[in-house]
Design a protein around this nucleic acid. Sequence first.
DNA 1: TATTGTTATACTCTATAACTATA
DNA 2: TATAGTTATAGAGTATAACAATA
Lengths: 166, 166
Amino acid sequence: MDDRRVRSPGAAFLIAQLGGHSARRWIERLAKAGLEPREVMLFRHVAVNQGRSQREVADAIGLPQSRIVALVDGLEAKGWIRRQPSASDRRTNALHLTRKGQAALTKIMAVSAEHEADLTRGLEAGELDQLIKLLGKVAGVQDLIEGVHPGFGDANADQTQQTGDR
Amino acid sequence: MDDRRVRSPGAAFLIAQLGGHSARRWIERLAKAGLEPREVMLFRHVAVNQGRSQREVADAIGLPQSRIVALVDGLEAKGWIRRQPSASDRRTNALHLTRKGQAALTKIMAVSAEHEADLTRGLEAGELDQLIKLLGKVAGVQDLIEGVHPGFGDANADQTQQTGDR
DNA sequence: TATTGTTATACTCTATAACTATA
DNA sequence: TATAGTTATAGAGTATAACAATA
């Protein structure tokens, strides 16, 4: 069996491998800081889009409404966001960041910055710029930059490695 | 709230985003060809490391032995691999590729090649080389090239997006 | 006594479908 | 009648622990 063809990495594999690694490390860092990835995902969305209803948030991040409930419960229990009952439509809750939430956001950004620095520590400044430029180019062609959210509702789309190992 | 810091992409996010995208697209392509990612993962490992026991394979790809069983059952039912009972130790099965498996492997490689071409279609040849070089450099620092297998036993380590959306 | 392959159990996560209150 | 939020249910996927055969 001619190993070479089976093992050859290629950009697609490298990206998938590194992407999985990046996501995993980021989650580890969050965990150390007592943060859960899904909460963080929703929390950041609320932070950037304050005042949206749970329904709107659910649609935006591609999660069923039913899952939002527990997530919001948790974030509210932590005191990071609050459900603001709407006066005009008493069925809806507008989600807002609290003061405590601002602090949490700062912490999350710090964690992300650490993560970024760690992941790119092997590159010089110029190389990093190059890399970001090239990745951006790929992302652009893949219609990824604009819509941004990968979807990822499918937890089983795990970062399956595509190479011959070892 | 100063959006900019919250939204800023950064290499780590870009990589995670593209990595998720790459993995997802690859899985889609496999599905079209009637292939299941987990099967393919195990199958490719067997192809490159023929004759290993189920236990060895399980350890290598970081899955519990119990999960290997059903996977091997499926691949054997397809006629791609076979359980070769060991003469020296009658507890173990050595896993081998069949002739039919060779053909399947060819098909899988074709799918992967298509995927590679599609993902990198936005780049010129020189840029692609550059990208691979830079990614390789990052991967090297992250101790990823050598051990290769990302682990990924945790299906919940989904490629959680790390950005402010939209 | 330890180990390989296997099966069974118990648990987590998830989407889907009811349900209520408002509109 | 339709929609927002919520709760309940039922299914898939998983690891862990038991099990039988062999070492």
